[in-house]
């Protein structure tokens, strides 16, 4: 794969050159999100924001499911990336999704009660996975499976993936997005193909 250095000094140098030809109006720090540091205004991980749709108990359940879908590894998982707050925000705007989620949460706790006499969040990780993994497998088999509990899992998984990989943690830290830079030239591929 192509390799080159795009350290901060070279970025600023290129900006100087652009500025000379077209009166580029921004400082590089304002322009390129990834060169700024500190929490962003909207960064969901930055503060405990008020919930828009879920009550605290349902939010805890959704948070647990999200973290089982994308767990902490060498990088933060869904909860560490603020994904549950994103899910809350999106679902607050969508009445169809609200119904799916309400049914799903009720189903989940009744399954948990039946298996171990506890609510879902009170189960061990192994017990939680034994409820969720069959839903995930059924969804992988057929993502349009109309069963209500599979629709519920499918919705939470989609929102978890969307929220995680568009978060600062998911995009920058986990995936290592490196674009949005000003390069003086496009690097040649140095691989043997």
């Amino acid at each position: 794969m192509a390799s080159y250095s795009s350290d901060r000094r070279s970025v600023l140098k290129i900006f100087g050159a652009i500025g000379a030809t077209c009166a580029y109006p921004f400082a590089s720090d304002e322009l390129y999100g990834q060169t700024t540091s500190g929490a962003h205004e909207h960064s969901p991980a930055s503060a405990k924001a008020p919930l828009h749709f879920f009550n605290e108990s349902d939010f805890a359940t959704i948070s647990r499911i999200a973290d089982l879908i994308i767990p902490e590894t060498g990088t933060p998982g869904a909860v560490g990336a603020g994904v549950p707050a994103y899910i809350d925000l999106v679902i607050a705007r969508n009445t169809d999704q609200q119904l799916v989620v309400a049914d799903g949460l009720r189903w989940l706790d009744s399954e948990a009660e039946r298996a171990a006499g506890k609510k879902f969040v009170g189960l061990t990780e192994e017990q939680q996975l034994s409820i969720l993994e069959p839903l995930c497998a059924a969804m992988d088999e057929n993502k349009n499976n109309p069963a209500r509990n599979i629709q519920f899992f499918s919705l939470i998984k989609s929102l978890t993936a969307d929220g995680y990989y568009t978060s600062q943690v998911g995009l920058m830290e986990e995936l290592g997005y490196k674009g949005n830079m000003a390069l003086a030239a496009y690097p040649e591929c140095v691989h043997e193909h």
Binding site: Y32, G33, H40, L171, N180
Partner: peptide, 11 residues
């Protein structure tokens, strides 16, 4: 042009 998705609540 140079915004990133996490700058917006709905991404």
């Amino acid at each position: 042009t140079h915004a990133l998705p996490f700058e917006f609540p709905f991404r």
